[in-house]
Design a protein around this nucleic acid. Sequence first.
DNA 1: GCATATTTGTCCGTATGTATA
DNA 2: CTATACATACGGACAAATATG
Lengths: 217, 217
Amino acid sequence: MSESFVALADQVADRIRNLLIFGELKPGERLSEVSLAQAMGVSRNTLREAFRSLTKDGLLVHKTNRGVFVATPSMGAIIDIYHIRRIIECQALRLAHGHHPAVMRMADAVASAHEAHGREAWRAVGSSNMDFHAAIVDLADSPKLTAFYGNLAAELRLAFELLNAPRWLHEPYIAMNGELLAKVQAGEVEAAAAQLERYLSQSERAVLAAFSGRDAG
Amino acid sequence: MSESFVALADQVADRIRNLLIFGELKPGERLSEVSLAQAMGVSRNTLREAFRSLTKDGLLVHKTNRGVFVATPSMGAIIDIYHIRRIIECQALRLAHGHHPAVMRMADAVASAHEAHGREAWRAVGSSNMDFHAAIVDLADSPKLTAFYGNLAAELRLAFELLNAPRWLHEPYIAMNGELLAKVQAGEVEAAAAQLERYLSQSERAVLAAFSGRDAG
DNA sequence: GCATATTTGTCCGTATGTATA
DNA sequence: CTATACATACGGACAAATATG
């Protein structure tokens, strides 16, 4: 349990990451060194180390002599993320065999998305959908790719938070995830990859549309 | 020129990165906070921030209460890296069109590899080869993917350094890079992708063979 | 455009815990 | 087992840059 003791700065980074994921820190918001350090009960130096970690992950942006801010995903960043997702996720599907342990995690994600849909818990639907795609990436059996994808997903989460339309963003994909899962379980990986390609393009268009339609000023 | 002023910790991280790339810091070596901070003329706090950056990149590993060490790529890590390279580079090739600006960088890399080969400068051959593959990734026009690939390449460089057989590791691929370039320029992207797939598998086997054959104790 | 307050960037001293000889 | 060396973390200090009135 106390096996891998993580450094304090890493704990702080994790706490901030959670604040970001749960939307308690809004994109664009400035994070004061002194205030946050005091609020979290750590020194400024420790907090700065945590900042550096999160900046590397693209969750915070660092402006010299001005401080760190919660990253505000740009349209270009979103296009980039979906572009990479098409490359990585579709290829991971092609390499998949139906009895890979990650397939069970895909099934679990579909189930919990359905359950959350019944409760009209749209943000929970979104989380399940993201679990589904993380499981797809895990089909590739690559720790480094999994970690990289985790960063992309976290940044995409910020964009979803910014758009603040969880039902519109997540509901349409519950059924599609189910179809995708069925194809993978049936071993029709090429068909699954082709469908995911269209799927991701549709999702990208929806996000970008919502993005350009937001407070246009 | 002084447009983007980088923070001191970033400058320090870059300097350490260069020491790693040029093999002046060997894999497994420990980096003392006090010594290095003094040697580089910065405070320990600043150095620790740099350490955190490089640890995120996988170039250094952090052992709690023991300090930071130059990463020693494991066999598993190398397999992972080649696995990801096949996914990313081959797909980037498939998406390429022959007049993409990155194609010129591929050609430049082939030319400088030939030039270095004439001088029997094998490490320079290796650098050119890596430039060639970085250019392939740039065919995908994805800043985040380019950055991610840069991390993989830096870690792979550590492995090459560890093996210390630059000619054996790099010479065989000069010609292959030329063939690959020709196919891309001719628009035969699918053939190029197939060839790169075999190419990378061969390279992986060579690296792993050298890896298991090194000081087996 | 100027003076002032705030905040970051960086460094130092030091206390504490942990690992190793 | 003791001693030493080192990483870890904290708080204070000051200059430089930025924001504010």
